[in-house]
Amino acid sequence: MTGTAANDTRFAPGSTVRVSDRASLGHCRTPVYLRGRTGTIVSVAGRFRDPERLAYHKPGMPLQTLYRIRFSQRDLWPGYGGPADDEIEADIFEHWLEPDQERQRDQGA
């Protein structure tokens, strides 16, 4: 990897995060079915060029931190028929993630 990152790694493995549910214009690697959903950081995958800039012939800088995030299937799909511990993992860039304030409040109480 070349260049500098946007900032230091903001989220640590094990912390819960919410995927922003904002809309996007043009190329974007955040699937709509995960927007607004809460998951757990599994690992920091590294820093990569920003696909939202790269797609439009920009260098894709600053680099964005990419995280592997695990979601519970039952949290994603109402009426999911499989066992409660089935899960799905996806890679989401840091600028699409926010701290999960609701869950933090619950745990802090």
């Binding site: 690697r29 990569f48 990419l66 299937q73 066992p83 511990d85 989401i92 860039f93």
Partner: peptide, 27 residues
């Protein structure tokens, strides 16, 4: 996933958890 895997003819062990990996970015 379990429905789709069944259509592929895959019978999972009873106790197996299913983890779908969505390659959304650079992995």
């Amino acid at each position: 996933p379990r429905g789709v895997l069944q259509e592929f003819g895959l019978e999972l062990p009873d106790r197996a958890k299913v983890r779908v990996l969505d390659s959304t970015a650079d992995l």
